[in-house]
Amino acid sequence: MNKQITAASLAFAFGTAIAVAAMPVAAEEKTMEKEKCFGIAMKGKNDCKAGAGTSCAGTSKMDYQGNSWSFVPKGTCEKTASPTSPSGKGQLAEFKEKKA
C-alpha cells in the first residue's frame, strides 16, 4: 500500500515543503528548544584553575558495594511517572541508603 515515490511526487513534496516552511510556526510546532541561551551558557571546558583541595574526589576509591549511599539515584527520576523499567524493578530498593 506504499505510495509510489516518483520524480513528480518528490517535486510536489519539495514544493509543499517550501510552502509549509514559509508559514508561521504553529503553536504545536515540534520545536522543543526554548532554552535560547544554551548556546552562550555552554562553558569552555579547558582552563588552568585548580579545584578546591578539600574535596576527596580523587583520593577515595568509589565502589558501589562499599559506598552504597552514593549509588542510590536521588534525583528527578523519582518524579517521573514510570521511574523503573520492568527489568529494573527493585533496583532502587536494592541500592537503598544503609544507615548505621
Binding site: K45, G53, C56
Partner: peptide, 28 residues
Amino acid sequence: YRNNVMVSLIDALADSCPVAEALVGTRF
C-alpha cells in the same frame, strides 16, 4: 593534584549532561 584531575574531569561530564545529573542527583 589528585582532586584536580578527578574533579575537573567529572565537572566536564556534568557540564555536558545537566539533565542526566538532575535525573539521578548530583551525588549519584
